[in-house]
Write a protein that binds this DNA or RNA. Structure first.
Lengths: 218, 218
DNA sequence: CCTTCGTAGATCCTATAGGATCTTTCCTGT
DNA sequence: ACAGGAAAGATCCTATAGGATCTACGAAGG
């Protein structure tokens, strides 16, 4: 029998979750200085666990530290850095798609097909956008998980955190296309077809990059 | 004019460096429990910066945290995990080799050829082994650096930390072969030949995996 | 002999305080 | 008016202390 793992956590972990979410949804905006004492007051904890959480966030690249001068939220990626990130996504996620097609369990293939078919219902614009973003991230994580490579999945998760920082600027119009591409990908994986899965992921990412890059024109 | 960036650092950073080195060279052995107070006494600092350093090390996977029960040094990889790590190396480092052949600067190609040709001189066995390990890591980092992709280089660096934990068990005899493979790789990159560079890296890693895997037979 | 329970000790986690450093503002001098 | 500098304030970093939790050891019971 397997009981649900009970979560006795420390304040540091909770603060970490809270801060990470705040950075990803721009409650703490890129470039902002992070005032440790102010955060501690807001969260009603002492600066000690806040500091610990920031150390972890820095290791993930979500905040930057200047010794003796505090932390700042990492700035948005430059166009060059953004392209580099998508090169990495192409490298990692195409491999993930291939391996998922080869090694995923039947259950994983099933959920993937189901989740890729889901669409986001109405609601106000902000909530809808957040839901769409979460769904997209979820689908990609399912693929990473199905690849049966813990290290690969972890790398992809790291990358997606940085991607998420830019999601705010994603054009709403093209979400239907995204959904179609997800379904093609899921179908290929479900059919145990590595070549087609990798190709579908590559197509999807190349299109996604193009969709995002318009935000850099100004 | 460019002055050397003066390094004002905090205790937390210094402790981090010290602990990271201790883990990599097995001064803190895999599986060991990490006593925060004892470490603080040894390093002659308070537990606070030690705790901060451990938070960062945990984010890199070098130590593990059990809430309210302290940290332990991450155990050695199982055979499965080790194979997964080499699958990742094949994915990441082959791409790095290819990109390096395409995009490295003339200086980078030069240093790479030079460093790949270096051999490790005598000295006692332990020091010699450490030097060889460092040289190998250095060559691979040069390739990662020459790939001109900061994200790729960072991912590779992370992986190598875990690889390093297993280096202790590397058979001494085969170092000459390793050196030859490095030189083939460097030559291919120097010749702007992506296909050959990627192939050389793949060969090298497949052989390296085989060389390491014998340590898992018992 | 093995298991269960309870206590003592060790260890962890968080809050707080104070010294050290950075940042901002204001003032002086040119 | 502008550049340079000093002082006040804000912020960071580290050490210490105490409450909370875990671990280990030994005793009691089956």
């Amino acid at each position: 029998m397997t009981l649900p793992r009970l979560k006795r956590s420390t304040l540091g972990d909770d603060v970490y979750d809270s801060l990470r979410a705040a950075v990803l949804e721009h409650t703490l905006a890129p470039g902002d200085r992070v005032n440790i004492d102010a955060l501690a007051r807001d969260l009603e904890v002492s600066p000690t666990p806040v500091r610990e959480a920031l150390a972890r966030l820095e290791s993930e690249g979500l905040v930057r530290k200047r010794p003796l001068a505090g932390y700042t939220v990492s700035p948005l990626l430059t166009r060059t850095e953004f392209n580099d990130m998508f090169d990495m996504r192409l490298l990692l996620e195409c491999a993930a798609a291939r391996w998922a097609a080869e090694r995923a369990t039947p259950e994983q293939r099933g959920t993937l097909v189901t989740e890729a078919a889901r669409t986001v219902e109405g609601g106000d614009e902000h909530a809808w956008h957040a839901a769409f973003t979460a769904l997209d991230a979820h689908v990609h994580d399912l693929v990473a998980q199905a690849s049966a490579s813990p290290l690969l999945r972890e790398s992809i998760t790291r990358l997606h955190a940085h991607l998420h920082l830019h999601r705010r600027y994603f054009p709403y119009a093209q979400t239907a296309v995204t959904n179609d591409e997800h379904q093609l990908l899921a179908a290929a994986i479900n059919d145990h077809d590595p070549d087609r899965a990798e190709a579908a992921m590559r197509e999807h990412l190349i299109h996604a990059r193009a969709r995002h890059l318009v935000a850099f024109d100004e």
